[in-house]
Computed example of a mutant assay.
Amino acid sequence: MLYTPLSEADIFPCSDKEFSNRQCISYQGKQLYVEQLDDGSYQILQLLSTDPQDFMDAAYTPGTILR
């Protein structure tokens, strides 16, 4: 048994192809885990920060598109 907040799909991914377009980037001095979309833009999946104030900024909300 695994006791984790992650979904089953995150722990047991279907294929490596789904994760090939995901990467960590630095954007405006913040580390972000993003997914590259077909049009070349990025969608934020996760903000990687130890500063609680960073999470209050709506610009880094998961789902936001970076062009």
Rank of each mutant, 00 (worst) to 15 (best):
S49E: 01
P5K: 10
E35N: 09
P5Y: 06
P52G: 08
P5G: 03
I44L: 06
Y27G: 09
P13H: 02
Q53F: 07
T50L: 06
I44K: 04
A59F: 07
L45H: 07
S15C: 14
K17I: 01
S49D: 00
G29K: 11
Q43G: 09
G29C: 11
R67Y: 12
C14N: 11
F12A: 07
A58M: 10
M1G: 15
D51I: 06
R22Q: 08
L37M: 14
D54F: 00
V34G: 03
D38A: 15
D51A: 00
T4H: 14
Q43A: 09
F55H: 13
L66N: 01
F55W: 05
Y33D: 13
L37Q: 14
Q43C: 13
Q46V: 00
A59T: 06
L45T: 05
D57K: 05
Y3V: 11
Y42H: 11
L6P: 01
F12W: 08
I11D: 03
I25C: 06
D10M: 15
P52T: 09
A59I: 05
G29V: 10
D38H: 10
T50C: 05
Q36C: 09
S26D: 10
Q28L: 10
S49N: 01
E18N: 04
G63Q: 02
L32F: 12
I65A: 04
C24G: 07
L45I: 08
I65W: 07
G63D: 04
L6M: 12
R67V: 10
E35I: 02
Y60Q: 03
I11P: 03
N21C: 07
Q28I: 01
L37Y: 12
K30S: 02
Y60E: 05
L6D: 09
L45M: 12
Y33A: 11
M1D: 14
R67M: 13
L32A: 08
Y60V: 01
N21H: 04
P62E: 01
V34Y: 03
Q36M: 11
Q23T: 15
A58N: 11
Q23I: 07
S41K: 10
D39Q: 12
Y27L: 07
L6A: 14
Y3A: 12
E8A: 12
A59M: 10
G29S: 12
S20L: 03
S7A: 13
Q23A: 12
P52A: 07
Q28V: 04
D54K: 06
D39F: 05
G40Q: 10
F55D: 02
Y3R: 15
Y60M: 03
Y42Q: 08
D54V: 04
R22F: 02
